[in-house]
Design a protein around this nucleic acid. Structure first.
Lengths: 137, 137
DNA sequence: ATTATTATTGCAATCTGGTGCAATAAAGAT
DNA sequence: ATCTTTATTGCACCAGATTGCAATAATAAT
């Protein structure tokens, strides 16, 4: 679990609270909401404060251990393994799907050429309808 | 101002509060924050409640009169004229930039072919660094 | 013009996410 | 094993956004 060494390298401490949160995110390959993380931590240690959880999530994001994004109204987190930062989220069933980073490279290049704008693909979530849900209606 | 007729058609009422908000959004071509909308309405009628404003914005979004999106931590609204739904938001200065819808069409088509996922381009905001801000650092 | 209907509003309370600060505890030094 | 340093936590509080409900007011019917 390399996140622990990342923390230690930077002089950050590996606390019970951080282990609870990190392990939970690593055990869940899907996107998870802040709410579900809070629930999980509270189910094991109810006395852990929610502000600690939010601060831990911010810290993990700053150190590239998790990715944080907004999907509709909710804040969503997922673990940060290489090559898995790009997500599609279905507006109907809520499931997430990965896509190949290369798909967006031409867009990135074109926007840099024409507008000089450098988009950050790591934090990009695209919403829509997945295959199954499209067939339902 | 077709939004008024949209409301009337659906049996929704055109109230002072809704006129204030609609007119303000129509007069502003840029993205505007919920905060600036609240400030504007309060500058004319301080007694209007903020929950009314949020509810009105949700209603206008549901009826396709405005678009609502998240940029970083803020909620952002803009009027819904055809061909202006696609935005880049700079993470440093907060300015917004439009881009041509066509840029993303190949991506949309590819994802539909390979994954069957139908992305909704209307609500897509991409974050990054604009030309000016890139040059600053 | 007045009345009846019901969509809309204001209010109070709530929820999510975030902040300053004093108390606490992890990890290194002794 | 104990002490010291200071990163981290819990607490209390705050801001933005949201909701249930009773009061209000926009529109249709008379």
């Amino acid at each position: 679990m390399s996140c622990y060494s990342v923390l230690k390298e930077k002089g950050l401490r590996v606390t019970l609270q951080r282990r609870l949160i990190l392990d939970y995110i690593h055990d869940n390959k899907d996107h998870i909401t802040a709410e579900s993380i809070i629930n999980h931590v509270h189910s094991k240690f109810p006395q852990v404060n929610k502000s600690t959880i939010y601060r831990t999530l911010d810290l993990l994001e700053k150190n590239d251990c998790v990715f944080k994004s907004k999907s509709q109204d909710k804040t969503i987190y997922h673990h940060a393994e290489e090559g898995h930062h790009h997500h599609l989220v279905c507006n109907r069933c809520g499931k997430t799907f990965d896509y190949d980073e290369d798909v967006l490279l031409p867009v990135k290049k074109k926007l840099e050429k024409t507008l000089g704008f450098q988009i950050n693909l790591n934090h990009l979530i695209m919403n829509g309808l997945c295959k199954e849900c499209r067939n339902l209606k």
